[in-house]
Design a protein around this nucleic acid. Structure first.
Lengths: 204, 204
DNA sequence: ATCGCGGTTGCGGATATCCACAATGTCCTT
DNA sequence: AAGGACATTGTGGATATCCGCAACCGCGAT
């Protein structure tokens, strides 16, 4: 899968090459970028499974790139690399949602392990996101009237009540209901409820 | 609410007192403990809203106490305090689920802010947990047979199918179904689905 | 042995849901 | 004006669900 790719962004040629060699020598696909700007310009972020990101770089910093990614809907796991990091910086990065924070010089095996762990959670996330997108697409196909009906179906209201509520006939509600099930790809109100309740963005 | 209490565990008398004074002077309820063992022995952890925890202590360390808490079902937010922390330690603590990691000496205002943030998320969690517990209690009231039926109801199966599946009459399934709804405090399969789908422990 | 709980079933009726077939009217686009 | 998407309604029948009333059975506890 292309999303197994490990993207590496570091403006230090030596370190970048060392990282590339490290991962490739172990059979992983690594792609190298010498600056945050280059990565963004490349437009291939979507194909990245996890990102090893140097914090201190000329131009856009690693933290700035990280924030840019989050603002643009990429929530791939990011492992920050830093030669001169301190505790507050690490804490801030992790609290903002970074996956990990590693100091240079790093232990090769440990870094690889962490990157693989990042890939793991990336896969978990991406499958859930794919499902969520799928649901959203289906929801988008519903007409406004159908949404009104669906809302009430999910509230557990009977067709009779919904009909009264919307000022239409039961028959009309039945038709909407059938269309909703059809468009949403479910075969019962229970499945619909599960689909939409699970879809809810996780709090915490 | 008693869960607004801030528990402070530090074996350094001076720091502990300073922390207590800091929070109390700002109108918060702070309770002090001089060791991890004392906190556990006190048996009042449940009343704590967030926990400020020194990492380096004689006897049980802060990290050990943290793990003990997690293993014993307390997922209150913990802010680690440390005088000699390093980046890997901070990263490890946060990845294990600590809420924050602060170095001594700390900035008073900042620490208070972070503690209040911790209280915030504690309240969010606790209300969700209360709901989850409530559901679990109701689930526990179901007989094994009712669980079997419920499982199939949630799978969207019709009574007819469930009956065949379990080798019983439709009437029997109807009875179970009614009891399930009654015990779970819902009035339709849709509500049941929402209740149990939402209950699912958050991944990520 | 008597009692309670849980699982089971039957009967019969009131409701509710699902659906095929058919049709009308509105609004908007081509 | 023709075509299409959408909301709406009707008829009528097949299914499915919901429930009160009544009852039987096995098992463990008193």
């Amino acid at each position: 899968m292309s999303t197994n790719q490990i993207f590496i962004v570091d403006d230090d040629d030596a370190i970048r090459d060392a990282l590339g060699w490290l991962f490739r020598s172990r059979g992983h696909v690594a792609r190298l970028w010498s600056s945050a700007e280059a990565l963004i310009a490349g437009g291939e972020i979507g194909r990245c499974g996890c990102l090893l990101l140097d914090i201190r770089m000329d131009g856009m910093s690693g933290l700035e790139l990280f924030e840019w990614l989050r603002e643009n809907g990429h929530d791939i796991p990011v492992i920050f690399l830093t030669g001169h990091g301190d505790v507050p910086m690490a804490v801030a990065a992790l609290k903002k949602g970074a996956f990990d924070f590693v100091e240079k010089p790093f232990n090769d095996n440990e870094l690889v392990d962490r990157a693989l762990a990042a890939l793991d959670i990336h896969h978990q996330r991406s499958s859930r996101q794919a499902a969520a997108r799928e649901v959203d697409e289906r929801l988008a196909q519903l007409t406004s009237r159908e949404l009104e009906v669906m809302e009430r179906v999910l509230a557990g209201q009977m067709n009779k009540v919904i009909a009264m509520d919307l000022g239409v006939t039961m028959r009309t509600v039945e038709v909407h209901r059938a269309r909703i099930f059809d468009k949403m790809g479910v075969r019962s109100a229970v499945e619909l409820a599960q689909l939409l309740t699970a879809r809810t963005p996780k709090p915490d």
